[in-house]
Each structure stands twice: as C-alpha cells, then as structure tokens.
Design a protein around this nucleic acid. Structure first.
Lengths: 204, 204
DNA sequence: ATACTAAACGGACCACGGTCCGCTTTCTAT
DNA sequence: ATAGAAAGCGGACCGTGGTCCGTTTAGTAT
C-alpha cells in the first residue's frame, strides 16, 4: 500500500515499485502535486478525495489505486519530513541520536516529536484517521521500537508496554488538541514530557 | 447534546430534559432498547444509525435528534457503567476512592480504568470516534480532573499537562489495540501502569 | 371540544470514503 | 510492426454519518 519506503535509501524523488508504468508515474506526480496545493490552500482536513481526483484530472479510482486510502495519501505527503525526523533520532548527533544516555535521548526525542507534530499536525491527524489502526503504521512502529530500546537500556520493566504508554503521550491528536483547544504552549508540553521521562528513569 | 447527566442525581431511569414530551420519551426508550439488542447481537462497531432507526421503527432524524451523533448514542449506552466507575473513584472506598495516598489512588484508578476499558472497549471506541474531539467529553474531562488533582497533591509540576499524558496511556483505542492485536495481557498493562505511576511519583 | 403552538417526526437528501468492473494504455515478446 | 497480457484507468456505485424541512402530534389555553 505504501510505495515509498519510510527511509529512502538514495533517491531524491519518491519511487514506486520497480518497473512502474509511465502513465502511473505521471499520475502519481500529478496527484501529489495537486494534493500539496490543496493542502497548502485549504488545509489537510478539508481535502477530499473527489476534489483531489478532479483537480489532478484523474479518476477517483486512480487516487485510491495510488495511495490506498486518504490516510495513505497523507502519509505519502508526510514521508519526507518524517524520514528526516527518523534519520535524526537514528543516526543524528546526540542527544537525539546515539551517544547520549537513554534519559537524555528520550527527552530529546519527545521534544523533537512535539515540534514535529506542531508543524505537521493537520497531516498527522489526517494520516491517523482511517477506518483502522493508526497504530500499526511504519513510522509509528519505528518510533515505538526506538523508545522501547531506550527504555530497555534504562532498565525499565516491560519496555514494550511502557513505550506504548509514552508514545500515547505524544499522540498527534492529543498534542494538537492541547495546543489548539486549550491553548497550552509548546514549552509546557516539552517541559512536562521532560519531567515525565526524567522522573520515570531517574535512579532510585 | 447529552441529556443524561454523567452522574445521575437520583433517578434509576435516565431522564431527558424537564417536560419531555411523551412521544419523545417513548421513542428514546425504543431506541435505547433496540440499540442494546443490536450491540449485544452484532457488536457496537457494526451498529449503523439506519439499522437502529429501522429496528426501532423510527425515522432516522429522530435518532439524531435524540443522541446528536453516533458517538452520543454510544455515550448514552455507556453512561450507567461509566457513572458507577466515577462513583468508585470519587466517593468509593480507598485506595480507589479518597483516603489513600495519591500514588496508590492513581495506581488503583489506572487498574480500574483498564479493566473498565476491557469490558466496554467496543462501546468506548465507538463513543470516541466522532467527527470531533474524543477528548472534551464529560466523562473524559472528569477523569482528567481527577488525575490532575492527585498529581497536584503529589507535587507534580504542571499537573494539567501531566494528567493529559497519563490519560493518554489509558486511551481505550490503544488499550484495546494492545490486547486484541498484540496479545498483551491485562496484567502486563496494569503492571506497567503501576510502574509508570510509582516511578513518576516516588520521592527523590 | 377547539384551536393554537411548539416540539417532535420521518425520510429524502447530501458529502465523503471506498469499491468494482468494463475499457484503455503501456510494455514485452516475437 | 504486431499481438497478447497485464497494469492502469475512470467514474458509476455503495454504505454510512449527518442534515433539512414539510408534516404530524402532544400539550395548553380558551
């Protein structure tokens, strides 16, 4: 369903499956282009698949053939910035990347994630509201695994479940809701995350 | 939108607004009855508003007039057990109710909530997936305030935001997903919650 | 009883995500 | 160049949540 690997190996232009037909490539390009325009102009929330198909001069079926679902489209739209963020915490410099102690890396991860969400909130929300399962999605799984690893390194019992709990605190919908509806400042969010993680991991 | 107060003052039967017309009352009864049957038989997920209207011999408009939305209907269906749970943590015996130290109350709250979610998962999920904002809903707000209070009592900085983070860890969709998709046992969930809260609140 | 009013009703209607399937286009093998 | 196969295409179609508005009905005032 997702033709673009989460972490592109080399290419600067997203590639489809090997030997993608030329018309398919052309249409994907048109669709992505139209989608970006629509998102820029009206926001991700109000993008409808019909409108997109229409704007791209393409049949509706084609849109779904390309992206599988509205959520899939949004993920594709996100994949560039998401990959960048992923590179940051996997290969980048400490404290976000490897080299710092787990607690510091976790704090940095949360802060990075919160700002990432605040920048891409609409897309993330739209990407996470499909018929099903905003959880079992490549980017989310990767982030979860990252946190799980750090927690294990820090000696937390049941890192898998704990990672889920921490991920929940970074849920895009929640963060956006806190900021937009309740007027919570980003700083309060990152500070609170920092306190949470620090208290959770501090030695007895 | 929600005619049934979260914590009924006296009546054993849900009441509408004062001076509700008799036909309205009759229809609500019919609808609730039909809804419970449909949920029992086919599960909350597959309940459609058309089917409900049809089964209750009522126009579709009436369903929406009564409950506002599908989510509203689900909340009404939940309100009894939800009220019971609420009474538990507000007025019940410790450690869930008042009288125990905050950390213990929080642990108890989470455990209670997790089991509550596991019993009413489908309804809760359905209640939380509306057009908007599964957050700003009476029951959720109340739970948040409860956690916030306990956190403040325990001396946590920014209890409001921290309460949000902890609430997130108890999100029905996430819990149900962990259990149903990943086969996590309830015990692992409650243990992890307990560890989270204990570590978070333990003295330095 | 009658007339009046506001609430409630019902179902046609809409928007949107998603599916289906007969037709068209591209690629490949010859 | 040509033919056959497979991938792609498009838009009619469907299910579902939610809205609208002309009609009906319960309560009330006389």
């Amino acid at each position: 369903m997702f033709f673009v690997s989460s972490i592109p190996l080399q290419p600067d232009v997203p590639l489809g499956p090997p030997h993608e037909r030329s018309d398919a490539a052309r249409n994907r390009e048109r669709l992505l282009c139209a989608a970006r325009e629509l998102v820029d102009e009206f926001g991700a929330e109000s993008l409808t698949m019909d409108a997109l198909a229409c704007k791209a001069n393409v049949g509706k079926g084609t849109v779904f053939r390309r992206f599988g679902s509205r959520a899939g489209l949004m993920m594709t739209l996100l994949s560039d910035s998401e990959s960048e963020f992923q590179r940051g915490f996997m290969f980048g410099p400490p404290p976000l990347g490897p080299g710092a102690p787990p607690a510091e890396r976790l704090v940095a991860f949360g802060e990075g994630r919160i700002y990432f969400v605040l920048e891409n909130g609409e897309l993330l929300k739209a990407a996470g509201s499909s018929a099903h399962n905003r959880f079992d999605v490549p980017a989310t799984i990767l982030a979860h695994r990252h946190i799980e690893l750090l927690l294990r390194e820090a000696g937390v019992g049941d890192p898998w479940v704990m990672a889920m709990s921490l991920m929940a605190a970074l849920d895009p919908e929640r963060i956006v809701n806190d900021v937009r509806v309740h007027g919570i400042s980003p700083k309060r969010l990152t500070d609170s995350w920092s306190e949470l993680v620090t208290r959770l991991l501090r030695a007895v």
